[in-house]
Computed example of a mutant assay.
Amino acid sequence: MSHSSELPYNPSNDLEAGLKEVPVERVNRWGQVKLYLKPLYRFRHTLVLKREEEKKQAARKLRIRAHIQALRAVAIFKQVADQVKGSGDDFPIEPEELASMSRNSDVHALQRYRGKEGLADSLKTNLDKGIDGGDLQKRIDKFGSNKNPPEIATSHWTCLWEALYDFTRIVLVIAFVGSVVMGIMEEVSLESLNAY
């Protein structure tokens, strides 16, 4: 670095000018020589290298931050894709969600699938023609067969036992028992009168 011969040499001016004008490559190339020549050069070299190290750390932090944001974006994209596509099978809607939507008349859940047309697309069905028979086994595997489960036959004794809990039947049984008892007592009293 040169300075005018008319002006006296001022190390502080040289330091300020040197920090702004000297490129890093030049500092690195001549750094070893300057370190031994003057304490001023040693100080300048340390400041420039410190600034370069701070720039590298800032760039490294930016790269790490960008990488983390990219990973978050991938995770969010995968989550949204899984919600749209389901669990990777042919039908993106789960049977429980479909049953809940039907049972509760959940309009908001229907709107998440873009209405009845979107729901029909998700279920791969046509609103006019119905389902295609080619994927019937996949539908049975996913949603189950469209049959009511067979009812378990109840015995006559079970039906009788359940019928005893009806109030009207209880009153009728009591009336019947009372009538039979009254009939027996009447017959007994007639026989006793005839015997005398």
Results as ranks from 00 to 15, higher is better:
K78A: 12
D128G: 00
A75H: 06
I152S: 01
L136A: 10
V74K: 02
L15E: 03
V171C: 02
A70N: 02
E21K: 02
G18K: 03
E53V: 00
E117S: 07
G134I: 06
S122W: 02
Y196D: 15
L164F: 14
E96F: 09
L190N: 11
S87L: 13
G178V: 13
F167A: 15
T154L: 15
R44H: 00
L37Q: 09
S87N: 14
K85H: 09
S192W: 11
Y196G: 12
R112S: 04
S12N: 01
P39I: 00
A195N: 12
R60H: 10
A17P: 00
Y36F: 02
A17R: 10
R139Y: 13
H67A: 14
R112G: 00
S4M: 10
P95C: 11
S2W: 05
M182T: 13
I76H: 05
R114C: 06
S4E: 11
V27E: 03
A73Y: 11
D14Q: 11
E97F: 06
L47E: 03
Q69L: 05
I152T: 01
I131D: 03
I76S: 05
V177Y: 03
K55N: 11
Y41A: 03
D166Q: 15
Y9P: 01
K50W: 03
Q79C: 07
Q57Y: 05
A195Y: 09
R44C: 02
N146Q: 08
K20H: 05
S155I: 12
Y41V: 00
P95Y: 09
L164Q: 14
G178I: 12
V27M: 08
G144C: 10
D141H: 07
